[in-house]
Amino acid sequence: MDLKIKAWRQKDATSKGQFEEYQIANITEDSSFLEMLDVLNEQLLAQGTEPIAFDHDCREGICGMCSLYINGRAHGPDTEITTCQLHMRKFKDGDTITIEPWRSGGFPVIKDLMVDRTAYDKILQAGGYVSVNTGGVPDANAIAIGKIESDEAMDAATCIGCGACVATCKNSSAMLFVANKVSQLALLPQGKVEGARRAKAMIATMDELGFGNCTNTGACEIECPKGISISHIARLNREFLCASARD
């Protein structure tokens, strides 16, 4: 298929960016979206133009490195996938495809389609873990954990930290991201011990880093590549309220 690509080009964090248009021909529908961009980049190199910078790594939907706002949707026109899992069969010959970076104050653009998501690391550094050192822990089967609770913790833990929830939220809220970790650990006895401290520390860091508030629009849940439910946000709110009430 032949396509027109409208891609956001921005030299670096401080420069002003703009859309550039490119034509690309003979893309097969079995190609992934990022393979289409690879072909476009080889074409740009041949023309002496710098290729488009975009984040990607595992190309199998788990590392969370790829991003991209495609035709107005985080990770493009399909559900429960990342951009690297999007295939060109979702497009038609002659389509114009608009590609933008994540747009959020919390994720400044580094170059072209790449953004800085270290804010996510900082939120987790504030308390997204169980405070145990290596060694000296009890036998793995010493604590029985209900399968249902454990499975629900796993649902939350599947978050890949890609940032689609923030990018798609009109408030740029990171609540689903924060909720995933808080909820995962709140559901497990290992994590309960410091649950209150964790919820407060992570929320405070999220607020400091310029992410917005949650107004329950549910957009994050729809665009989450792992299909994580906003019910985890409810659990985060409960954890946070209980923790604050105890102060």
Binding site: Y129, V130, D139, A140, A144, D151, M154, Q184, L188, Q190
Partner: peptide, 22 residues
């Protein structure tokens, strides 16, 4: 064996049986 103990202590949600064990 220590690795499994360590990971469970960190809150890694390994698959479990209905009885609650791994």
């Amino acid at each position: 064996n220590d690795i499994i103990d360590q990971c469970v202590a960190q809150g890694v949600p390994f698959a479990r049986e209905y009885g609650g064990l791994l």
